[in-house]
């Protein structure tokens, strides 16, 4: 049986972070700049300024 030895784990840790970083950054940027998301972002940013201090009941 192969055991997970220290060197393999260390190698994985040292290399994995970089790929993970790149993948995550791309994902986040795509989400943030996805054109159809713009509307809900703008709305959200404005919505908190509306001074209607009541919960919505519908």
């Amino acid at each position: 049986m192969m055991s997970i030895d220290h060197d393999i784990l260390v190698w994985f840790s040292k290399s994995f972070g970089l790929f993970y970083l790149i993948a995550l950054s791309i994902g986040v940027l795509v989400y943030a700049y996805w054109p159809s998301n713009k509307k809900s972002f703008d709305q959200a940013a404005q919505a908190i300024l509306v001074d209607d201090d009541k919960p919505y009941r519908g």
Binding site: D5, H6, L9, V10, F12, S13, F16, G17, L24
Partner: peptide
């Protein structure tokens, strides 16, 4: 997910440190 993976990847190898 995002918050745990870093810690796991970094800490896990320390538990085999006795090999070195």
């Amino acid at each position: 997910g995002v918050a745990s993976i870093g810690g796991i990847v970094e800490i896990a190898p320390l538990f085999t440190i006795h090999q070195t």
